[in-house]
């Protein structure tokens, strides 16, 4: 019974999230909006690459490293953004946070449910970006060589981890003013910098590499690259070439488990503090 109720929370939170995301316009415009942003973000990096190298084929290994890393990083940027904005939207825009908060549902599951549409939309955007890379930019992905099993496992662990980090940030958002965008931009920027998304972490100074090695996103992206570009030599670029796929997957599991515990602790601490300080229904529009 309890499980059914929890699933119902997840289902209706997802449905609500989907409605908020999509029902403000016509479906074609919604699709165009959803795709334009991530493809533009990718094209910025492609143009930066092309201003240095004349063609994507000049250094196909670097190009593929950057392209795949950036494409899958969309999950981090979009899902984190989605989860953090749940608090700000419900608290300040729709002003429904207090009602949802006191409703007899799991608030964790409500927040996670709201993230589901973001994951679905981002998945579609990533597939389109990859197709664009292959068809237009000459990115080489051999579908027969892709390690689908490893990719599927990495995706499950990676997405749970991203959602948990989002939950911690949602907790912090309870306590801050309308800085959802700054929080998202900043934390996403931190992962973008330290996790070897578009460049090998060996480019960073030693202390930066040490930070990167402590964040699960680093391992997640490395596994995703190795799975998608299996046999292409990308393994030699990222700075983790001394480790096997299984070792990196183990690092991902362990670091994700640690982040899981930390995220729950942050959310629950921030939640308590927000209640104590009466911040659950504050509005900070100026």
């Amino acid at each position: 019974m309890a499980v059914r109720e929890q699933l119902r929370t997840l289902k209706y939170a997802s449905w609500l999230g989907w409605q908020i995301e999509s029902n403000w316009t016509k479906p074609w415009l919604f699709v165009a909006y959803s795709i334009a942003k991530p493809i533009s973000a990718t094209l910025i990096l492609v143009l930066m690459y092309l201003v240095i190298f004349s063609s994507s084929l000049t250094r196909p290994d670097i190009f593929a490293f950057m392209f795949i890393g950036n494409a899958f990083y969309m999950y981090v940027a979009q899902v984190l953004f989605g989860i953090v904005m749940v608090i700000h939207e419900d608290r300040e825009h729709y002003q429904t946070l207090k009602q949802i908060y006191i409703a007899p549902i799991s608030f964790y599951l409500y927040v996670m449910g709201r993230a589901v549409p973001k994951i679905v939309i981002t998945t579609i955007a990533i597939l389109i970006t990859l197709a664009f890379g292959v068809l237009v930019l000459g990115l080489e992905i051999n579908l027969a060589a892709v390690n689908w099993g490893l990719l599927a496992l990495a995706m499950v662990v990676g997405l749970i981890c991203i959602c948990m980090i989002g939950l911690a940030l949602a907790g912090i958002s309870f306590l801050t003013a309308k800085h959802g965008m700054g929080i998202n931009e900043g934390i996403a920027g931190m992962f973008y910098l330290f996790c070897g998304v578009v460049f090998p972490i060996t480019v960073l100074p030693q202390w930066g590499q040490a930070i990167g090695m402590g964040i699960p996103i680093t391992y997640w992206l490395e596994i995703v690259r190795r799975a998608v570009l299996s046999g292409s030599g990308v393994v030699n670029i990222g700075g983790l070439q001394t480790y096997s796929e299984m070792e990196i997957f183990l690092f991902l599991l362990v670091s994700s488990a640690i982040f899981f515990i930390i995220s729950l602790a942050i959310f629950s601490y921030a939640d308590r503090l927000a209640r104590k300080k009466g911040k659950l229904d504050m509005t900070t529009s100026y």
Partner: peptide, 25 residues
Amino acid sequence: SWVLFDIFLPLLGIAAFIFYYRSMG
């Protein structure tokens, strides 16, 4: 709190683009 969110954290994204350029020489 905006000092952290609006001044220091955005620098990280900018730094990433700088390292991206540097990684390509």
